[in-house]
Amino acid sequence: MEWVNDIIQGLLTGGLYALFACGLSLMFGVMKVVNLAHGDLATVAGYIGVGIIAISHVPVLWSIPIVVVLMAVLGYILQRSLIEAAISRGELTTLIVTFGLSIIIENGLQQFFTANSRGLGVGDSFITSSFTIGSQITIAYFNLAIFVLAVVVLLGLQLFMTHTKYGRLIRAVADDREAAQLSGADYRHVFGIAAAIAFGTVAIAGICDGMITTLSPTIGTDTILLFAFASVVIGGLGSLWGTLLGGIVLGVAQAIGAQINPNWEPLAGYAVFLLVLVVRPQGLTSRGAQS
């Protein structure tokens, strides 16, 4: 059945969505910041990747760690300067600032790269080669690889949160900022690290996305931000694995929608999102009511 194929496809895409979403969720959970520029950061990462490859002819996969580190550092700097200043002035200001960033990034990219789309070529054979299970199910190696990468990153993030000093500190600061200060933690630094992680993970996602589809300046919000947000809402705030579940549900919904009518792919996802918003706003995994 084509359906099974699509569901599996959706599942794999869900991993990528979860990777996009975990940074958004992290920044909201720790600093109560909804970063409207979140999706655009992924696009920036993709474009930086394109730039690096063009200049240094490094294999695409090598560009991932370089870009991730760059973006993580950028995240720390941006957090300690701009976002910290915005937070201290209130939620409204933070929204304006991140929205402004989003517009600036998108239009900036448009200026420098024109509205045309770019792709991070990985080599056609790698992208399209696939294997088959049974007689019906075809899985592209590449999509599987990205899903595995996403799960590995989420696992790594989980381990970081539970087993390292700064992971604990991030959770502590998210729980009670003042009490964490009393234990000697400079919460601004902790916020910076959280932002660095958010930027880094979204960068990985952005490069992977750039390999599958083509980059264009506006996909930062058109697809990424909104899909990431939808994944978080569907899965429930506060849980990394909930976000993965949310991403998978979104991916599957989209795949099924595409099956019915290719134009309905994003709509189907949003339909599920709206359904969850109405019926169970706290998400599928969360226990409490959404704030």
Partner: peptide
């Protein structure tokens, strides 16, 4: 009020 970290 103690102020322990509830998720830890």
């Amino acid at each position: 009020g103690r102020r322990l970290f509830p998720t830890l």
